[in-house]
Amino acid sequence: MKLASKRRSGFVVAVLGGLALALTSTTVHADEHTTPTPDAIAHRGSSGMAPENTAAAIDLAVRQRADHVEIDVQRTKDGKLINFHDCTMERTTNIEDRYPDRPRYRVSDFTWNELRTLDAGSWFHPTYTGEPLITLDDVITRINHTRTGLLAELSPCTHHTTIATDLANHLKTKPRYLQRALTRNQLAVQSFHTDDAHTFHTQLPDIPIGILNAQRPTDTELLQLSQWADQINPQHTVTDQTLVDRIHQLGMDINVWTVDEPGAIRKMTTLGVDGIITDYPQTLTQH
């Protein structure tokens, strides 16, 4: 994620939560890349080596010198923003054992006090038994003042109808973090849903925004998105040189996902992508 927001070049922005926040940055254009090495973006933290989206995975990614951690933002029943990927929690927690009589196991069906008691680690390995879920604020605290930035994904789960606004409003309460992260190009937000991405962008236009794609975007789509988006983040299997060059030509970055096999990492690097989202960030950072 080499680019700051395209709209952020020596700007002074807005009132966040009643506080005036001055943000300054020098925009780096996509055709001015000075390093051939793509950013290492730790997918759900260093999730190949620790249970995904937990403190253990985030901390390990920081120790492995990942450029960014990629997380997933969902909202609990009582409005807490937490770091969790799946639309239901059975796969990576003991929620069925802990709450056997609940009709559904969505994040939004439980309060944070209920969810904080779950075991989110033993499914991965007994070493991580008792590893808890963490909030968005926990993630920010763990990476703040490190070299590792944040790529936050708006949950695509359909029951989170206001997640873009929820995240924007929460970030507005953290002006000091925003100032530091944006100045250092250490914050971006992405979504599979273009409407959610645009909603977030309209509320915090100076945070770089990315569009996730499982399919190859058409040129018409790229042209439309280039009017306001900063990143196109496609699945690596649909990515080739033509797509990379076109995205750069339109002034956007490209971060590909989820790339774990060494040969695929070498291929994406050769294509000149800006970031590689991977379960094993040390593959890119430890030579």
Rank of each mutant, 00 (worst) to 15 (best):
T158S: 12
E52P: 04
D245H: 12
A164E: 05
Q235P: 00
A152P: 06
D39E: 06
D274N: 12
T285A: 11
T162W: 02
I209E: 00
D67G: 15
R246Q: 11
V238Y: 01
G48M: 03
K267N: 12
T194V: 13
G18H: 10
R246F: 04
T135Q: 09
Q186D: 00
N185Q: 09
P132Q: 08
Q203P: 03
I163G: 01
T162N: 13
V238F: 00
M268Q: 14
A264Y: 07
W112G: 11
G149H: 10
A50T: 02
N233I: 03
R102V: 02
L212W: 05
R216P: 03
S5F: 09
R7C: 01
I265E: 06
L223M: 05
A56P: 05
A57Q: 08
E153M: 05
H159E: 03
V256I: 12
T24R: 15
D230T: 13
N53I: 00
T218A: 11
I211S: 04
S9Y: 01
A188F: 05
A14G: 12
H287S: 14
I247H: 06
Q286T: 14
T76Y: 04
N83I: 08
V259R: 03
P205G: 10
E52Q: 09
R180H: 15
H287C: 00
Y280H: 15
I276V: 10
A22G: 08
Q186V: 00
V244T: 10
E131V: 14
P262N: 07
T285F: 12
E153Q: 09
G130E: 10
P100Y: 12
A229Q: 10
T194M: 13
D245A: 12
H201E: 00
N53M: 00
Q179V: 08
V73S: 08
M49C: 04
N53W: 01
P156G: 00
S226A: 15
H193K: 13
T158W: 02
I207C: 04
C157G: 01
R142N: 10
T158Y: 07
A57T: 02
E32F: 07
H248F: 07
T111P: 12
A57Y: 07
L151S: 13
A229L: 08
S122M: 06
D240E: 01
A40E: 04
T165N: 09
I82E: 07
T173E: 05
Q224Y: 07
H248M: 04
G121N: 05
K172D: 02
N83W: 10
